[in-house]
Design a binder for these strands. Sequence first.
DNA 1: CCCTGATTCGC
DNA 2: GCGAATCAGG
Length: 176
Amino acid sequence: MTDAGPSWTKERVELLKRLWSDGRSASQIAAEIGGVSRNAVIGKVHRLGLAGRAPKINGAAAPAPGAVRRPAPVIEVERPSSPAPSLLAPPPPSLALVRADPRVEPEVALPVSERVTIMELREFMCRWPMGDPASPDFRFCGARSITGLPYCTHHARIAYQPAAERKRDRRVAAFR
DNA sequence: CCCTGATTCGC
DNA sequence: GCGAATCAGG
C-alpha cells in the first residue's frame, strides 16, 4: 500500500480534538502530532468546527468577500479583583532580590516538581524565577498561578507584601 | 520579535 | 479537503 503520507486519519483527528479542547496551542499540537504545521492544525480545527471557543457575543464573524475583517469578538471574562489596596504595588521579583531574600532560598523545600523552562511556561503558570537566569538550570516555578496574578499562592505572598511586613524585611532589599 | 488564532485561496 | 500565505491581535 502506497501511503501517500500521514493525512488526517481518525486517530490524528481525535488527538487533535483532544489536544485542542485541552487548551494546547496550534503550534504545540502540530509539534506533538508531527508532520503538520500549525497552520495545518488551525485549518483542520476550523474545518472541524472546533475554532472559536467563545462565540458568545459574536455574530459578526461573517467577513464579506473582499471586505476588511472585523477586529475580533473579544470577550473579556476576568476581573478576580486585584490585591487589596492596603498592599504596596506589586513589585516584580527582582532576580537580585530573590537571591538575597533568605525566605526564598529554601528552593529544595518547595515543590520543585513543577519547575518549568521558559518554553514550557504558560499563562496560568507561576512566573517566579528560580535559579540563575544565566544557568541552563534556570526555571520558573510553574505551579498553578492565582487567577489574575502571575504567581502561585506561595510566591504571590512574597511578591505582594503588606507595607508593615515589607518594612520589617526592609533589610532584604538592602542590596540597593 | 515572539507568539496566538483567523481567514483566504490556489492546489 | 488541505495548508501556506497572509492577516490581525497580544
